[in-house]
């Protein structure tokens, strides 16, 4: 029965967490308080692991919490619970959109949504850049401006930018290469 409950708890999270993986956090805190499946410290660890593994953060968190609670099957069930509402909702929305795609109102709405979508993606990219290229914690302690910048990472980022523009290749290639460079040069 715990499996059913696991599914249901994550189904609810998937249904009400609007705005991506980090929006699942409050639900996880709530779940930890009500069920005792994991502690709040474990949620912090969870977030660290989720951010440094492939995959969407919300999915990683649900798998991790599920495995923690009920082993391999728990991880699968929790993740299925989380994605179920998405699949249902998106299929409905996709059908509704198809029906109204010629409507002027829908076209006008998307006229506004596209740049907004791009703005949000840009903000997310800059957010990653801040974490990747700046050492804000060191800077806050020392106050020396030169220590704010993580030079090695900035050089790597600039190199990737120019090589990527020139040579193309799949982004996956650059991600793997960057991981190798990170390990070799101890970034």
């Amino acid at each position: 029965m715990i499996l059913l409950r696991l599914f249901w708890e994550f189904f609810k999270t998937g249904l009400f967490a609007v705005g991506g993986g980090l929006a699942t956090l409050p639900f996880l805190y709530d779940m930890s308080a009500r069920t005792g499946w994991f502690t709040t410290e474990e949620i912090a660890d969870l977030l660290a692991v989720s951010e440094s593994t492939p995959g969407a953060i919300g999915i990683n968190m649900s798998t991790y919490a599920g495995v923690h609670t009920f082993g391999v099957i728990g991880g699968i069930i929790a993740t299925l619970g989380l994605i179920c509402p998405s699949i249902i909702v998106i299929i409905i929305i996709s059908n509704v959109l198809k029906k109204f795609q010629d409507s002027k109102l829908v076209q006008k709405i998307f006229y506004g949504l596209r740049p907004a979508s791009l703005g949000l993606i840009g903000a997310a990219g800059l957010g990653v850049a801040k974490i990747a290229l700046l050492k804000t914690d060191v800077f806050q302690e020392s106050g020396v401006l030169a220590q704010l910048f993580d030079w090695k990472c900035i050089i790597l980022a600039v190199c990737i930018f120019f090589v990527y523009r020139k040579l193309k290749h799949s982004p996956i290639f650059y991600i793997l290469a960057a991981a190798a460079v990170g390990i070799i040069f101890k970034l």
Partner: peptide
């Protein structure tokens, strides 16, 4: 793990470039 941290420091530098380039 230090290896994991180094790898992901590299990956993050790459990912922000890829995202901003896509934008």
């Amino acid at each position: 793990y230090p290896v994991v941290q180094h790898a992901f420091n590299g990956i993050r530098a790459c990912v922000c470039v890829l995202i901003l380039d896509a934008v």
